[in-house]
């Protein structure tokens, strides 16, 4: 009986130990650091309670910009990236000529590093020689040419377009895998019952993709919250800090300004936001799928 109780733990234990050492312990240590004023080296860490958090929320204007940008980025990712990923998956799940090639083409940007994507898109957005402005000039729409990355009103959106181009491949592949696991019988039965394609999508595809949605939602949300390299590569947080996000501002606070406490507080704000959204979502979808 005792062995029966302990046996599953023996299988879980190695991964659990690794998880505790690599993820949980550093996270808790970071949480502890967020209550101190420390430069990362000095022997004495000064306990400041929640001062780092109140500083961020009441005094640090860049933090508020970064928080707003992260929320916008997250909302955009959860709608645009997931929406496009699902749309491409539905299209490429049909019997199209050359669909494997299209699948590879749409997935390809995802395997590129963020910095490479940033370099490519920075060139595309170049104010005078970039693809977009040159095309606009050549088709007689020079009045629409714009320094896309240099205007705070368009900079974040311009970077987001590049991120969509890069990121849409992952949800597409996950949705494709989910779609291929749905039995054909369900659709055939629906056709016999007179269901229209839209109804099949609403009442068969979406419910049977619910498990896939959990994975796609979680990965997209986490990727959106930790976005860093593409922004750093394309604008370095500028112009005038207008494209800073929490990860980049955490980097600046921690590694440039040596404010380990403030940097740690930013990282925990990130963790909390992610948890507030993801835990209820996973709980709700799990509960629903076991009804």
């Amino acid at each position: 009986m005792k062995i029966k109780y302990w046996k599953p733990w023996t299988f879980v234990l190695p991964a659990l130990v690794a998880y505790l050492i690599v993820i949980v312990a550093p996270s808790l240590y970071t949480l502890r650091l967020s209550f101190f004023s420390w430069n990362g080296i000095a022997a004495d860490k000064k306990f400041v309670g929640i001062k780092n958090y109140t500083y961020l929320l009441t005094e640090d204007a860049v933090f508020r910009v970064a928080l707003r940008n992260n929320i916008l980025w997250m909302a955009g990712s959860l709608t645009v990236i997931i929406g496009l990923g699902l749309m491409f998956a539905l299209l490429l799940n049909r019997r199209l000529k050359g669909r494997s090639v299209f699948r590879s083409i749409f997935y390809f940007p995802y395997v590129l590093s963020g910095i490479i994507v940033a370099l490519m898109w920075t060139w595309l957005y170049h104010p005078t020689k970039g693809f977009f402005n040159v095309i606009l000039q050549q088709i007689g729409l020079s009045q629409l040419t714009h320094p896309w990355l240099a205007d705070p009103k368009t900079a974040l959106a311009a970077v987001f377009v590049a991120a969509v181009w890069q990121g849409v491949g992952l949800p597409m592949v996950l949705f494709l895998a989910g779609l291929q696991s749905i039995p054909r019988d369900c659709y055939e039965a629906a056709i016999i019952d007179g269901a229209k394609p839209r109804q099949s999508f609403r009442y068969i595809t979406i419910p049977l993709l619910s498990e896939t949605f959990v994975v796609v939602f979680a990965t997209t949300l986490v990727n959106a919250m930790k976005v860093y390299d593409i922004i750093y590569g394309m604008t370095a947080g500028g112009p005038a800090q207008s494209t800073q996000v929490l990860s980049s501002w955490m980097y600046y606070q921690t590694f440039k300004f040596n404010n380990i406490g403030v940097g740690s507080a930013i990282s925990w704000v990130l963790v909390l936001i992610t948890m507030i959204i993801i835990i209820p979502y996973v709980y709700y979808t799990n509960k629903k799928s076991h009804l």
């Binding site: 920075t122 170049h126 104010p127 005078t128 320094p147 240099a150 604008t235 370095a236």
Partner: peptide, 9 residues
């Protein structure tokens, strides 16, 4: 300065 210089590398 060049147009859009503020975010040029």
């Amino acid at each position: 300065f060049e147009k859009g210089f503020i975010t040029l590398d």
